[in-house]
Design a protein around this nucleic acid. Structure first.
Lengths: 246, 246
DNA sequence: TATAGTTAGTGTTGTTTTAACACTTAATTA
DNA sequence: TAATTAAGTGTTAAAACAACACTAACTATA
C-alpha cells in the first residue's frame, strides 16, 4: 500500500546500467505513441525510469522501490549522484510532448533526484507498469524526453568517478565471473585499454577478489577461472588505503 | 528583484567551510531566542545557511546566490554533494522549535539540496539578512536544527573524497599561500599527518602550484615562499592522470 | 648586538607500484 | 588431429612512496 506522493514536483530518476558482455547499456522506458491510421510513430518518447517519492519513505527507499518494481531485485548497487531542476526542464522544444505523461503543469518544473544503479542483467525479467522497457547501448542512446540526456551524461561521469575509487565493476556481472569479463567492464566504462597482466597483478594485490574452483563451461577455448567478490575482505582492506592529490 | 520561490518545500543548503590557520570551520546562522525576562536563551537554534530556489534560476544559481548574499563573493568553490529528504526531518524531537522559522507546516518535510563551499576567510564581511552569523570549528559543532548535523556530516565526507581527487585545498587560502599552510589544510581535513618533504615532492610533480617571488612578512622565523595555483596548468595536466581501483 | 626561538627548506635510500612487452596452455570445432 | 580462440603467466626499467634529520633565515629579547 503505497502512500501519497510527497510532492508532485519531486521525483527520483534511476539511470540503470547493465552490461551485455560487450557494451555498457542503459535501461529506457519507451512510451512512443503510434498513430492509429498511419501506423507511424507520432513521436518517440524514451525516458529513464523514475517515480515520485511517497510520504513515508526516504529518497533512497523511493529509488530502491523503482528498481524493485522493475526488476524484482532488492540488493542492487545504487548511488545518488546529482539533483536536477533546470528552469526550462519542461519547456524543451516547446511542444506538447512533455504533457502527455501525467498532465502536470508544464510551467512547473520537476526536481529530479538522480540515482544510478548497476545490474547484473542475466536472467532478470523486466516489468514496468505494463510499459515497454528495453536495454539500449549507451553509445546508441538518441534523444530522450525531458532533460534525461543530461541526467544520463552526469550519471556516466559519476559512474566513471566512482569506479576509479571503489571496486564496483563486479556489480554488473553474475556472482561468479572471470577476470577478463571484469577487465572488459573497466575498459568499456573508462574508454581505455588495459594490459592483461598488469590488471591481474593489481587484482592480486587487492585481496577481495577470491578465486573459486569453478571454470567457465561451453567456451571454445581455454576456460577461465571464476572469481567472487568478498565484501568482508574489502571492508577490511579499504581502511588501509590512503592517497590524495595535492 | 528575486522571483517567487519555485516551491516552498525545496531549498538549497550550503555548508560553508573556512580555515582559520588551525582548524576547519563551518559557518552557522544563530537564531537563538533570548527570553526577555530571564535573559537566558530559550533554546539554541543553529542552522546552516540556505534558501529556496527561485522560479527563474537553476539550483546552482540559488546556491551561488546564498553565498553571494552572505559574503559578497562570486567566484567561490561550490559543489553539490547530496540531496536530503528524510520523512521525519521536521519532526525531530517533536518540539515547537522547528516551527519558528517561517511557519511551514511541520508535517510537510523539506527537500534539501546540499552544497558545500570553500571560502578564503580573510577579510570578508559577513552579512546574512540581519542575522547572527559565525564561524564554528567543525570539531566543536553541537546540535543543529533540522537534520543539519547529518547534512554537515555528509558534507565532510564529500569534502574528504573531493580533496583526495582534486586540488581544492588552496580554495581555503588567500591567493598567495605557503606550502606549510596548504599542507596543514590537508592534515586537518584528512585527519592525518603528512611528511613535509614528501608533501613538497608531490607538489613539485604537479606543475600547477607556481612559486612567486614573494615571501611571508612579519613572522618571527624564516619567512615562507608564497605560491599561487595555476588553473591553466591544472586543466592541462589533469587530463594526463589516470588510475583506478579494481 | 648576540643569542634564543621558531618555522622554512632541502636529499637519500629502500620498497612498492607502474608500464611495457610475448609465449604457452586448454578447451572447442572442423 | 589440426586449427582456432581466449586464458594465464614473469621480467625489467622507471616512477612513486615512505621514512628519516639537519641547516637557513627571520624576529624578539636580553
Amino acid at each position: 500500500m503505497p502512500g501519497r506522493p510527497l510532492n508532485d514536483y519531486i521525483s527520483v530518476d534511476c539511470v540503470i546500467f547493465g552490461y551485455n558482455g560487450q557494451e555498457l547499456q542503459v535501461l529506457l522506458v519507451d512510451r512512443t505513441l503510434t498513430n492509429n491510421s498511419t501506423g507511424q510513430p507520432e513521436f518517440t518518447d524514451l525516458t529513464l525510469t523514475g517515480n515520485h517519492i511517497y510520504e513515508d519513505e526516504t529518497i533512497e527507499q523511493a529509488a530502491y522501490r523503482v528498481l524493485f518494481d522493475l526488476t524484482g531485485l532488492k540488493n542492487v548497487f545504487l548511488d545518488q549522484f546529482k539533483t536536477f531542476a533546470h528552469p526550462d526542464r519542461l519547456k524543451k522544444e516547446n511542444d506538447r510532448r512533455w504533457l502527455i505523461h501525467d498532465g502536470r503543469d508544464p510551467d512547473k518544473r520537476i526536481v529530479s533526484i538522480g540515482y544510478f544503479a548497476l545490474l547484473a542483467t542475466q536472467n532478470i525479467t523486466l516489468e514496468w507498469k505494463g510499459r515497454n522497457v528495453k536495454w539500449v547501448p549507451v553509445s546508441e542512446v538518441g534523444e530522450l524526453a525531458f532533460d534525461h540526456n543530461q541526467i544520463l551524461e552526469e550519471a556516466l561521469i559519476a559512474l566513471r568517478n566512482k569506479i576509479k575509487q571503489e571496486p564496483i565493476g563486479f556489480e554488473l556481472l553474475p556472482e561468479k565471473f572471470s577476470l577478463t569479463q571484469l577487465q572488459n567492464i573497466y575498459e568499456v566504462i573508462l574508454s581505455t585499454e588495459l594490459d592483461k597482466r598488469n590488471f591481474r597483478k593489481k587484482i592480486a594485490r587487492m585481496k577481495y577478489l577470491i578465486p573459486t574452483d569453478e571454470k567457465q563451461t561451453g567456451v571454445a577455448h581455454k576456460p577461465a577461472r571464476l572469481y567472487v567478490f568478498s565484501r568482508e575482505v574489502y571492508e577490511k582492506t579499504k581502511k588501509e588505503l590512503f592517497d590524495f592529490t595535492v
